[in-house]
Nucleic acid binder design. Structure first.
Length: 227
DNA sequence: TGATAAATAT
DNA sequence: CATATTTATC
């Protein structure tokens, strides 16, 4: 009964501000389990033949975002270069320039990341054993400035880090189609459309793949380049 | 069923 | 924007 979910795209940065990377949408399991990307087939979401209705991106609820280690790496990198002061969700999101990534996503992740840093401070020098919870965060090295209360002055920038500066030749290995999961073929699962790709203005070769995992739709952003 | 991650609400 | 709470996923 909520019709107010049609505001996710309003946070989308302008194409000019955006430095779209090559992101691939794949199933979380495969993304995390393997370090490979695998685009299945069409770059376009499955669309019902002769279906008059489209443009569902406006009213559909966005699938859960899965933070891959690579994506988190990019997040940390952005925060590091921005500095703690400027490391606000909006700025981080803009610097990351990951298509499909919303400010809410970054804000939520930032919250967890801060708690992670705080928790890590408490156990500094002692046992830094990750309790299987910080796996994601542990995957990426934490800049020293993060743990320091007043380590660096306000006018400090790690690096310029201009969006588009790290333009690597993101080679999307969309060669092989992903292996079909054992439990593929969910009985009753609606299909969701990928929103942003369409409006990116042909800037990003991102691939869209809607995957139902055992009955739930999950969206995974999979950065292929950088570092 | 519980724990964790992400989303959503305040 | 930060924090708290709720929801979904593992």
């Amino acid at each position: 009964m909520r019709e107010e979910e049609s505001n996710w795209f309003e946070d989308l940065p302008s194409p000019e501000e955006l430095m779209p990377l090559s992101q691939t949408l794949i199933s979380p399991h495969l993304a995390i389990a393997f370090d490979i990307t695998n685009s299945s087939h069409h770059q376009f979401p499955l669309q019902p033949p002769s279906a008059a209705e489209d443009e569902p991106a406006r009213t559909l609820k966005r699938p859960r975002l899965v933070w891959t280690p690579q994506l988190h790496k990019r997040f940390v990198d952005a925060v590091a270069h921005l500095g703690i002061k400027n490391a606000v969700p909006k700025t981080i999101m803009q610097l990351m320039s990951v298509d499909g990534l919303t400010r809410e996503n970054v804000a939520s992740h930032l919250q967890k990341y801060r708690l992670y840093l705080k928790r890590m401070q408490g156990l500094a020098g002692g046992s830094a054993a990750d309790s299987a919870t910080d796996h994601l965060f542990a995957s990426s090295p934490v800049p020293p400035h993060f743990l320091h209360p007043a380590a660096r002055p306000a006018s400090d920038h790690y690096l310029p880090f201009v969006p588009g500066l790290q333009q690597h030749r993101n080679h999307l290995h969309h060669q092989q189609h992903m292996a079909v999961p054992a439990h593929f073929g969910s009985p009753r699962n609606a299909h969701f459309e990928l929103p942003i790709l369409s409006r990116m203005g042909a800037s990003v070769p991102g691939y869209v793949e809607d995957v139902e995992s055992g009955g739930r739709k999950v969206l995974t952003l999979f950065p292929a380049g950088d570092d």
